[in-house]
Amino acid sequence: MSTLYLFSSAAPPVFDIARVVEDAQADGWDVCLGLTPTAARWLADSLDGLAALTGHPVRWDYKLPGEPDVWPKADAILVAPATFNTVNAWALGLTDKFIVGVVAEGIGKAIPTVAMPCVNAAYVQHPQFEQSVETLRAAGVTVLYGEGGFVPNQPGQGNPATYPWRAALDSLNGLGSAD
Rank of each mutant, 00 (worst) to 15 (best):
residue 9 S to L: 00
residue 12 P to V: 01
residue 14 V to R: 11
residue 14 V to W: 01
residue 14 V to S: 03
residue 14 V to K: 06
residue 15 F to Y: 06
residue 16 D to V: 07
residue 19 R to G: 03
residue 20 V to I: 06
residue 21 V to I: 11
residue 21 V to W: 10
residue 22 E to K: 08
residue 23 D to M: 15
residue 27 D to S: 03
residue 27 D to G: 07
residue 31 V to D: 14
residue 33 L to A: 01
residue 37 P to D: 02
residue 38 T to G: 00
residue 38 T to C: 00
residue 43 L to H: 09
residue 45 D to H: 03
residue 46 S to P: 00
residue 48 D to R: 09
residue 49 G to S: 15
residue 51 A to P: 02
residue 52 A to Q: 15
residue 53 L to N: 09
residue 58 V to I: 10
residue 59 R to Q: 00
residue 60 W to T: 08
residue 63 K to Q: 11
residue 73 K to E: 12
residue 74 A to R: 08
residue 77 I to Y: 09
residue 78 L to H: 14
residue 78 L to C: 06
residue 79 V to G: 06
residue 81 P to D: 02
residue 83 T to W: 01
residue 84 F to V: 00
residue 86 T to Y: 01
residue 89 A to L: 08
residue 91 A to K: 06
residue 93 G to T: 01
residue 94 L to Y: 10
residue 96 D to A: 03
residue 97 K to F: 06
residue 98 F to Y: 13
residue 101 G to A: 12
residue 102 V to S: 02
residue 107 I to E: 11
residue 108 G to I: 13
residue 108 G to Y: 14
residue 109 K to T: 07
residue 109 K to W: 13
residue 110 A to C: 07
residue 111 I to A: 04
residue 112 P to D: 15
residue 112 P to V: 14
residue 113 T to E: 11
residue 114 V to M: 07
residue 114 V to E: 05
residue 116 M to P: 02
residue 119 V to I: 02
residue 120 N to V: 10
residue 121 A to S: 15
residue 123 Y to M: 14
residue 125 Q to I: 10
residue 127 P to H: 12
residue 127 P to N: 13
residue 129 F to C: 13
residue 132 S to H: 01
residue 132 S to M: 11
residue 135 T to P: 04
residue 137 R to Q: 08
residue 138 A to H: 11
residue 141 V to A: 07
residue 142 T to P: 03
residue 143 V to L: 15
residue 146 G to T: 13
residue 147 E to Q: 13
residue 147 E to L: 14
residue 147 E to G: 09
residue 150 F to D: 04
residue 151 V to N: 08
residue 155 P to Q: 12
residue 158 G to P: 03
residue 159 N to P: 05
residue 161 A to G: 08
residue 163 Y to A: 07
residue 164 P to T: 05
residue 165 W to N: 03
residue 169 L to G: 05
residue 169 L to K: 07
residue 172 L to P: 08
residue 173 N to E: 03
residue 174 G to W: 15
residue 174 G to T: 14
residue 178 A to N: 12
